[in-house]
Design a protein around this nucleic acid. Structure first.
Lengths: 374, 374
DNA sequence: TGCGGAGTTGAGAGCGCTCTCCTCACCCAA
DNA sequence: TTGGGTGAGGAGAGCGCTCTCAACTCCGCA
């Protein structure tokens, strides 16, 4: 029976090009499957001569080596890390901050010899199947809304997970920065310069599209931790100097692009031409705001102060006043945390440092606008 | 026996947190595995009521749904595409052209609901294991040297493969551009402007590091098709107007960075200060050459003409005269070719268009340098 | 001649799943 | 009553591999 089966397989492998298997190879050689397996995985477990014969026969039969999927099933490890992004996969390659994160993560994967599987998770469709289908040993989740079904699907999988910029997920390792403190530094800087009439441009706050002004309630209920924290910190910091947050216009953009930053800034300036500063929660949006200012003939920083967040190269080049966060380091830390499978008792947290970068886009408001106070 | 086994599994799933399996779920419910499987994969195959019970019990037992690896083994599809790069994985995120390619490829993957697995293939180590370990339904190979062991390992795998910028691989689908014609356009442009004393900066030609001048033989034997083709086309095109290629200095750089472009240009200018033009085989190198020219106080294009290749955003911003190639389209085409598993008889080839971009970095050489001829 | 041990090889048991037949009711037309 | 159509669910057979543990071979040494 066994011989029949192998014979059958053999025949097919010869004729109909059905790929040879470890078993058919073993049959051909007259050795056990174990021996063939060892030839690939534990060369020290068999004589060099036999190993040579095995590998040579493999070449002859076109046996491509042990099937990775079958091996994964048996060994219970896939040799890859899954990455879940909130956006369309392709988007990640368009945002320099995300690219930096990817670079760091891939660095960590490389160190560990692990593959990096980009999981297609379309935020529009609630198609979680891709998460279920992913053959990975762990997940890194990069800045998704806390109510994202993909995130939920990941957490259901019985594999370790690291989330980024998501302190609100329970019992999972996390990597991030102190978003509150980071943007508070920007706020304090602007306050010192004398700004009180500010506007804010922020990224998507939830899964539904809302391109326009944002109520305080929506700010508080934002599903993206990062944005929520930054807005809250701005509210607190400006609140300390008597700025009523409810009066501060905040414009949201679903898409994250320079042109969105421009239109958002335009929306702010249309409503309130007397703004002295626009705070953006990302450099991409900040660059857009700069463009819009230029388009309107506003001089930056004399007529308008603009700030960003992230510290991407393009922002540096533009002289944008911003907060630099170590995006590459963030990716790397996430990867390492995931792959360092010390059986940690409690969830670990890595908080990375940020740095206020004083560029050339922030200055004291024109004296007519300036606020004189205690 | 069967019951015992299931019982055992169940017990562990309850106590030691061993994840439940489809079989243990079936045992718990008193139905067959098939039914549970159907509950997930073919809802129409069982009554809604039973399905509800199954899913509810699954939730109760913490069953995360069918194991993706086991499913892959059985269905013989992994739901992912592997990407092999010549460089360290992380490098791919630093080269805008590669990022564009990745964006396109991920776009195609997304369309098809496939994952994208970045395979860690360190070019230094000859560690092919990662290729063998990759659980994927196909491979995309992006610009690796034709003697790369990783490429060989991919070709041994019994899965479809698409190579990019690699016309020399047999019986495999390919995507690329007409490198000869593309760079010949640059050459003709420079020839028309009057350049005859030119130098070339090219990327890595083989797997061994050779940062410096390149012999004609090494050019001919280059293992990177793209570089080989471009150099050959330059030789031919300039040869047609009487330039002896053997006299044209060509400098190679192993690493692909702006600073490498700068030092390479420096090497050329040190050896031959009378060069009127430096042709670079990539924009990144071209940007470096621009920097070096600036550093030396050479005006571009009055004192020195510089050209690039790729058409990345940064080059456009710098006004670099270059060739635009549709990198995103290339990635997308590669993905589509791979995923469109029409059982094509012969290997298919997609050749994408390129376009000469006239920037501000190329002009006629100063009259003293100019070549007057027939 | 016998025996412990080192070095090799093999048998059997799954890893967790899906797929292809089957079976078994059940029901309605003839 | 009977034949067979229909829909729900099950049995059995692997997918291709690795791992544990036992067995076998050969050698030197007593």
């Amino acid at each position: 029976m066994v011989l029949n089966r192998y014979g059958h397989v053999m025949a097919r492998s010869m004729n109909t090009r059905r790929p040879a298997t470890l078993a058919s190879l073993a049959a051909e050689l007259g050795v056990s499957r174990t021996t063939v397996s060892n030839a690939y995985n534990r060369p020290d477990q068999l004589s060099p001569e036999l190993r040579r014969r095995v590998l040579e026969t493999a070449r002859r039969l076109g046996y491509p080596g042990p099937d990775p999927v079958a091996r994964s099933l048996r060994t219970r490890k896939a040799g890859a890390v899954g990455l879940l992004l909130t956006e369309n996969l392709s988007y990640a390659f368009r945002d320099p901050a995300a690219v930096g994160f990817l670079e760091g993560l891939s660095l960590a994967c490389e160190e560990a010899g692990q593959g990096l599987l980009l999981v297609p998770a379309n935020p529009e469709r609630e198609d979680v199947a891709a998460v279920h289908r992913a053959g990975v040993d762990g997940f890194v989740v990069y800045s998704v809304p806390d109510d994202d079904p993909h995130l939920a699907a990941v957490l259901e999988r019985p594999v370790p997970t690291v989330v980024c910029d998501q302190p609100d997920v329970d019992s999972v390792d996390r990597v991030g920065i102190d978003d509150r403190e980071a943007i508070a530094a920007v706020a304090r800087h602007l306050i010192e310069l004398g700004h009180r009439r500010i506007g804010v441009v922020c990224m998507r706050l939830a899964r539904d599209r809302n391109d326009g002004f944002v109520s305080v309630q929506r700010q508080r209920e934002a599903h993206f931790h990062v944005q929520r924290a930054r807005l809250a910190a701005l509210a607190d910091t400006f609140g300390e100097v008597g700025v009523q947050w409810a009066d501060v216009p905040v414009v949201e953009r679903f898409d994250h692009s320079i042109s969105c930053g421009a239109t958002a800034a335009g929306q702010l300036l249309d409503r309130d031409p007397d703004l002295t500063a626009i705070i953006c929660t990302s450099d991409i949006l900040g660059l857009g705001a700069l463009n819009e200012a230029r388009r309107r003939g506003l001089r930056v920083p004399q007529d308008l102060t603009v700030t960003g967040f992230d510290g991407i190269t393009e922002a540096e080049r533009a002289g944008l006043t911003t907060v630099r966060q170590p995006v590459l380091e963030k990716g790397r830390a996430a990867g390492r945390l995931l792959m360092d499978n010390a059986d940690h008792g409690r969830p670990r947290t890595v908080t990375l440092d940020t740095e206020l970068v004083i560029g050339t886009t922030a200055a004291a408001p024109k004296s007519s606008d300036q606020w004189y106070g205690p």
